[in-house]
Every structure is written in C-alpha cells, then in structure tokens.
C-alpha cells in the first residue's frame, strides 16, 4: 500500500491533487462528472468584491499543447460566493476548500479576505495577484515585490486562515516576488498562474480572443512551471502548490520532486473533466513502478 497523503502547511490532504482555480467552476460543475470527495482539495473560481461579467467573447484560443483564455474573472462576487456557492458545495463535499480572491487594489483584497473570514467552510485563502486578464489589477499587483507584499500583509491582517499567494510567471525573477510575499507573512505560495499570450487569426488579421491577449496554459507551460516551483521552493521555507500544465500522474510526481508540497491541475480538466480523477487513480500505479511509498518530502538526488 502506498500513502498518497501530503501536508500543505498544517493541513493534511489525502492526496496532492487539487483542481486549479478557474478550471473547476465552484465545484458542482466537476461533481457532475465524478465524486469530488476523492480530491485532495479544490480551488474555486477567482472571486472579486463585486460581480463581474468578464471579457467579451471569444475568450478562448487553441494553441499547440495548450490554450489561451481571457475569461476576465467572470464571477458572482464575494457575497454570492459565501451565501450560495460555498454552502452548495459544502453540502456534497467534505474536503478542504480553497477560496481564490482577486481584485484591483490592496483594499479590494482586504475587503474580500475580511468577508471570507466569516466563512468557516473556507480552509485556505488563495490570493490571486497574477490574473493576466484584467486591467489595472490582477497581474499588475503581482509583478512588483513591494505591491505583492502590501497585498499579502493586508490580507494577513484581517485573516486567520492560511494565506497562499498565487504568483505570475510574467516577471524577470519570480523568486524576488516569492520572498517578498513570504516576508510579508504568506503561509504558502501557488506557483504559477498563466503566461501572457496572444494568437492572431491570419484570415481576419485580428487577435483570436476579443481582449487581444490572454493567459496561456496547458502542457506547453509545464517545464516553465517546474522550473519556477524549483526556484521558489528552494528559496522559501513556506509550502508551494505547484501549478502549470500538469496532466499525468508522472507530472504530479515531477512537480513534487521540484519542491511542491501539493499540485494544482488546471487546463487538463477543460479537455477532460475527469482528468483529476484519472490522475489520482493513476498515482499509486506510478508510485509502485517507481518504488515510492509516500509523496512527502520527495527530493532531487
């Protein structure tokens, strides 16, 4: 028997697989395909202070080994998250819930974090300072170490929950941002969000997504994510959720070996809603093949 459990700071997960924010809706969407209680945890769709429709359509562009999305943080707002989405999920799901919050200013994040504080069903707060699809916020807050630290500090001041800051890879040195968040009190980091990308329709001579640019994700970014996780995990003491392009159990183990404490699976669920289930079922098989008894403290030789 192999042991799939991992520790994410003080929280024990039955296995390291977590659907990434934006690729599992608010949980119920995935629950139509399988029993989501088999997941390690779940990270819900990014939520802002006010409801948002998001960007104009089209929001999706096909890419080699991936996709660009420019959804633009469509969400019903923090109040509806707390009054409707999370209670509906909790009724069918008993594993940890990660609430992903986003905003356009330090105050927006503090506002959402304070609201989330009243919700005992939220186990972890994920602070999204890395969304490439909104202007004047999102990623702009995650590319400057001082602003990233200010957001982290403001959230920590009003929240008693474990706070994981989700970082963008669209920076010169991700370690600088990671260290700034750690110093500001982050309990952990999610590494990485999507890469800023663009496709052009050569027939219409227009960008494929209406917003022009969007976040690039999928298997193509996996090596970038492994590198970023490796750099951050070896520069910081706080736990890292490794995210970016994972679609197989082997890649979960690779990400853990890079230094992640747990992993998030994103785009794979958009191609196959059963992706996380199939990866979790495959993990013991791959572990046995590799002679691994558990997934904690997997290190490079």
């Amino acid at each position: 028997m192999v042991d799939l459990s991992v520790n994410l700071g003080d929280i024990r997960l039955d296995n390291p697989v977590i659907p990434a924010s934006g690729t599992c809706g608010f949980g119920l969407e995935l629950a139509e395909w399988y029993d989501i209680n088999m997941l390690g945890a779940i990270s819900l769709k990014g939520t802002t202070r006010d409801p948002r429709f998001g960007n104009a359509l089209p929001r999706i562009a096909e890419c080699p080994s991936g996709l660009i999305n420019s959804v633009g943080l469509e969400n019903p707002g923090i109040d509806k998250l707390l009054s409707e989405k999370i209670p509906a999920l909790r009724a069918i799901y008993h594993k940890p819930i990660i609430a992903n919050i986003s905003g356009f200013s330090v105050e927006d994040f503090a506002f959402c974090a304070e609201k989330a504080e009243s919700c005992p069903d939220i186990d972890i707060l994920e602070v999204n300072i890395s969304c490439p699809n909104v202007h004047g916020g999102g990623m702009a807050l995650g590319t400057d170490p001082e602003v990233a630290a200010a957001v982290t500090r403001a959230v920590k001041q009003v929240s008693s929950k474990p706070v994981f800051v989700k970082l963008t890879p669209n920076v010169t040195d991700i370690v600088t941002i990671a260290r700034a968040c750690e110093a500001a009190g982050a309990d952990g980091l999610t590494v990485i969000n999507t890469l800023l990308g663009m496709r052009i329709d050569i027939r219409t001579r227009k960008p494929v997504v209406a917003a022009g640019t969007g976040g690039f994700s999928g298997p193509a970014i996996f090596p970038i994510a492994v590198r970023a996780v490796y750099q951050v995990a070896h520069a910081c003491r706080i736990p890292v959720m490794g995210c970016g392009g994972i679609s197989t159990a082997e890649e979960v183990i690779e990400m853990l070996m890079a230094g992640a404490a747990a992993v998030q699976v994103g785009s794979a669920s958009l191609v196959n809603p059963l992706a996380c289930k199939e990866i979790i079922e495959q993990l013991p098989v791959v572990m046995e093949r590799l002679g691994l008894k558990d997934l904690k403290q997997l290190k490079l030789n």
Binding site: P58, R59, P273
Partner: peptide, 22 residues
C-alpha cells in the same frame, strides 16, 4: 454558437449576456 473551451460549464469561456443575467 460560441467558441468554447471545455463545453462542460467549467471554464466560463462562452458566457453570453441574457435578459436573465450571464
């Protein structure tokens, strides 16, 4: 018809505005 990501309600890539909300 809209360009879709997942087709399964997961990614919110094809949301349209209607008289009863998105």
């Amino acid at each position: 018809e809209e360009r879709m990501g997942c087709g399964a309600g997961i990614c919110y890539g094809c949301t349209c505005q209607t008289t009863s909300g998105p």
